[in-house]
Design a protein around this nucleic acid. Structure first.
Lengths: 101, 101
DNA sequence: TAGATAGTTAGACAATTATCTAAATATCTA
DNA sequence: TAGATATTTAGATAATTGTCTAACTATCTA
C-alpha cells in the first residue's frame, strides 16, 4: 500500500479513533458507532476508507459486520513511517557545519 | 503540535519530498524548487504548511530563504506516531478468543 | 537608481473530503 | 411473511486542498 494512501487514512481523527478501538480487539459497526459522535453513514464511509487502505477488514456475521485490524498491514504501515522518519547521519566526510549551519 | 496537524502536513507527497530533502541538510527555496515539479508559489504554500506544523524553519539570508528541518520536532512527531501504532497486548486475563475470535 | 533575482501573497479553480438525510439491502424474528 | 434491526449506498452540501498565474516585496548589483 502506498504511503500516501496510508497517511491519508490516518489523517482523520475519527478514523484514528476507529483504529484505536480496533487495536483492543474486533468490534461490530454498531458498537464502534456508539463510541463516536457521527452518523452510521459517516462511519460506513470511514470504515470504507480504512478498508481501502487495507488497515482493517470486516466480516459479516448475521446482521452485523464485525471489523478487525489487519495487524500485519498495520505494523507494516508503522515500519514505513518509521523509515520515513529515519535520518541517516553521514558516518564521515560531512562536517557539522553542513548539518547545523 | 497536534497529531492531526502533523499527519496532515505529511499527507502530501511533495511535502514529504521536501522533508526528505531537508533531512540531508538545509537548502534554500530555489534549490528545493529545482528538485520538485511545481511552481514557486506552490512550493511556498507547502513550505508554509510545514512551517505551521513546526516541522521546518526558514531564515532569510540575503535574497534567499534557507529552510531547515526542526530536528527535535521532527523526532517528536515520529515518537507520537510510533506511540499511535503501539498495541498494548494485555499481559493476562484476556483470552486468545477475545482477540482473534 | 533601475533592473534582475528570490520568494511570498492574492485570487481563482477544480478536485477531494467529511458530513448529513433518505433510501436501499440484508438478516433476523414473531 | 411483515416488521425490526444493522449496515451500506446515493446524493447533496460546505469546507478544505493543491495547483496555477499574476502581482507584490525585498534584496542585490551594475
Amino acid at each position: 500500500m502506498s504511503l500516501t494512501i496510508t497517511i491519508q487514512a490516518l489523517s482523520d481523527a475519527n478514523r484514528r479513533r476507529i483504529l484505536d478501538i480496533l487495536k483492543r480487539g474486533e468490534m461490530n459497526a454498531g458498537d464502534i458507532n456508539k463510541k463516536l459522535d457521527i452518523t452510521g453513514a459517516t462511519l460506513s464511509h470511514h470504515l470504507d476508507i480504512l478498508k481501502r487502505a487495507d488497515l482493517i477488514s470486516g466480516r459479516k456475521e448475521g446482521q452485523q459486520v464485525i471489523y478487525s485490524l489487519n495487524l500485519s498491514v498495520f505494523e507494516e504501515a508503522a515500519e514505513q513511517l518509521v523509515k520515513f522518519f529515519e535520518i541517516k547521519t553521514k558516518s564521515k566526510s560531512k562536517k557539522i557545519e553542513d548539518w547545523r549551519g
